[in-house]
Write a protein that binds this DNA or RNA. Sequence first.
DNA 1: TTAATAAAAGACCGGTTGTCCTGTTTTGTC
DNA 2: GACAAAACAGGACAACCGGTCTTTTATTAA
Lengths: 225, 225
Amino acid sequence: MAENELKTRGVAPLSEKHRPGAPAVAATGKPKRTNNPQAMRARILDVGADLFQRHGYNATSMHDVVRAAGTTGGALHHHFATKKSLGLAVIAERVAPEVEATAIQPVSNASSAASGIRAVFNGVADTLEHNRAVTGCPLNNLALELSLADPDFREAVNAVFDRWRAALSFRLHADHPEMDEARAHDLATLVVASYSGAMAMAKTSQSAAPLRACATQLETLLRRT
Amino acid sequence: MAENELKTRGVAPLSEKHRPGAPAVAATGKPKRTNNPQAMRARILDVGADLFQRHGYNATSMHDVVRAAGTTGGALHHHFATKKSLGLAVIAERVAPEVEATAIQPVSNASSAASGIRAVFNGVADTLEHNRAVTGCPLNNLALELSLADPDFREAVNAVFDRWRAALSFRLHADHPEMDEARAHDLATLVVASYSGAMAMAKTSQSAAPLRACATQLETLLRRT
DNA sequence: TTAATAAAAGACCGGTTGTCCTGTTTTGTC
DNA sequence: GACAAAACAGGACAACCGGTCTTTTATTAA
């Protein structure tokens, strides 16, 4: 803390030699650069979400993000000073909305909790079968890799899990007012857990079958409730 | 293949200067070294399983393994030439037996499938509550991180998942001969998936509650079968 | 006793990591 | 049109990565 002022670790500027940041355009009237911070930020987030999803957080380097986003290290650093800040932003601005759209809203809007849950499982299974590789649930991927490594990550992921479970629990209670809250809570936990686990199995088996199996069994459980 | 004989990329031995491998003992009759390949191999595997479990595969360096095992890079390289070979050995010789002991055998030996499954879930929950940190299911951790990265890892993890599900399915069918095989298979998938997912939720919430919730709900489902 | 082999040690390699710094260009405001 | 701040460019940088290497030491077979 006290040695900050001694942190002159950079090299003294070699007047002539050191020229970082070459001119964006030599002399012609080329496109130069288009300042568009929102689009740049969005593109970095998209690329980050995609790479973290496909290769994992630790296996993705900042350079990978720079290359895939077609940008530069300076731009990346401007928007996200550290890898961790990019990771947290990806969770909050990409993963959480995706969970909201693909898993929470369909259940909230369905005619019943049971049919909504089945629709979500089978809908995701359909999507998986259309794609080439099963990359798993983005939330689950990041949860397992990062929740022990850093409390901030753990908190961020946990918030999404909680939101999801709470929404399910609310819908179950709405469908079945006679069901006590603890039961609804446990049931919602089972649904979320089996979705996460089924996605893990789907990833390792590269098949949507585990999702279909869980959808079937969960429905019989929910229908008898 | 044909350029093997030209592979003299090493530096010419600088007679006096180049002395890798300092003498293990200076001049005294110290313990020097104890040759015990099996114990060394076992220790490396134990340490590797522990570190991969707590920090993840990619976040664990070979140097971390060397340090934690109290050995040297040479010894590690002798037993496991690459990080991947260590990873595969950890799965085959540590993770798979652990799954066998903690999740498969208790169900096979229980008085019924339902009670065995409940015992496994609650037993693991008890263990988690005794430990400080919930590090999650080792199989699940490695599955999510590596199954997309490398086909060999995917195969290894998938084999464990399949073995587990097959054992559950067999026990369910033995308990309920009237149940058709597809149902038993799907039910077993749901149990494995909910275990994996519950462990993921337990890890992010640092609590054993998700496991207990799933145990309760799964039991009501199985008892009504 | 000697020769051969297996086990262990640790220096070392090229490459990559995440971070940060110094400039240049664009944009908004007066 | 001046000018400060934001947006972006491009590379520097030390620390570290996984992996290979040669040498030393212990064990075992002949």
